[in-house]
Design a protein around this nucleic acid. Structure first.
Lengths: 144, 144
DNA sequence: TTACATGCAAACTATTTGCATAAGC
DNA sequence: GCTTATGCAAATAGTTTGCATGTAA
């Protein structure tokens, strides 16, 4: 989406950094990818389009986007990270199916409130959180 | 604690595996360590006691204990894993202080219930979950 | 005695980094 | 033109693995 690239440019400028060809290609690809993706996914998607960016540049761009708060990482505890866009998405948590690996997003205000309440009670100032529920998704439940 | 070692032996037997000197030393050390620890912590603690187990054996034993449901991992998203005992501890979640790295445990029934409720509503059968709240602990709040 | 465990070193995997070269602004 | 970014290959870091040797049952 054009809007995301514009937002990226704006944030790059604020940091005195450059919009290179590689960054543009990578950002375009990322924001046209829905759902969750790994660094490797992006690399392969780019190659499918006949474009080749180095692995290092992909990682560096993902880090940059994360610092710019355009991207967030999800640690699925599998030895590599997944990313998802943040722009225009509200905070949510994740179900992770242990059978098929499917990741389903959910969000719940009461849950957020409760976490804040617990934090306050323990005199802890919350900044962010990560909740992952592991289990079996509806599809996989039916399959057995 | 003796009881933990006994439980370990029982579970080893059930899997037709052996209680070696190394495993005994490692398990003793683990269950006399309170709080959270890394593979490296265990290795160093053992060396302090003048005992040397290979790094590979420590990792293999940690994996074994995890499979036996005597240990659980906490992924602190720092490139290495922490472990904690499970035996005799009820499930809990973690605050992680982003200033000092301190990890504080908490548990809350309403939170558990709510998560189960949300799972049920989404037709997802929950097995386990991981909630980490990142923020600033009370000590670090006072320091600035 | 024999199947399983250990120790070592090498392998792995995702990610990061140093450095010479290229290219935005 | 100056400074920042890229690409490559090598480095990292935690963890895992192959294999010869040791050992619990």
């Amino acid at each position: 989406m054009q809007r995301d690239v514009q937002e990226f440019m704006k944030r790059l400028k604020a940091r005195r950094q450059r919009l290179t060809t590689q960054r543009k290609k990578i950002v375009d690809k990322i924001f046209s990818t829905h759902g969750h993706f790994s660094a490797d996914d992006i690399l392969h998607e780019l190659r499918k389009d006949g474009y080749r960016a180095s692995r290092a540049t992909v990682y560096r761009t993902l880090a940059l986007l994360t610092e710019c708060n355009l991207l967030e990482t999800i640690d699925i505890e599998k030895g590599y990270k997944l990313y998802e866009h943040v722009l225009g998405h509200r905070h949510h948590d994740h179900f992770i199916c242990t059978k098929c690996g499917r990741i389903v997003e959910f969000s719940n205000d009461a849950l957020e409130d409760l976490q804040n309440e617990i934090s306050r009670r323990m005199d802890f100032r919350p900044i962010s959180h990560s909740l992952k529920i592991y289990g079996v998704c509806s599809k996989c439940q039916q399959e057995r």
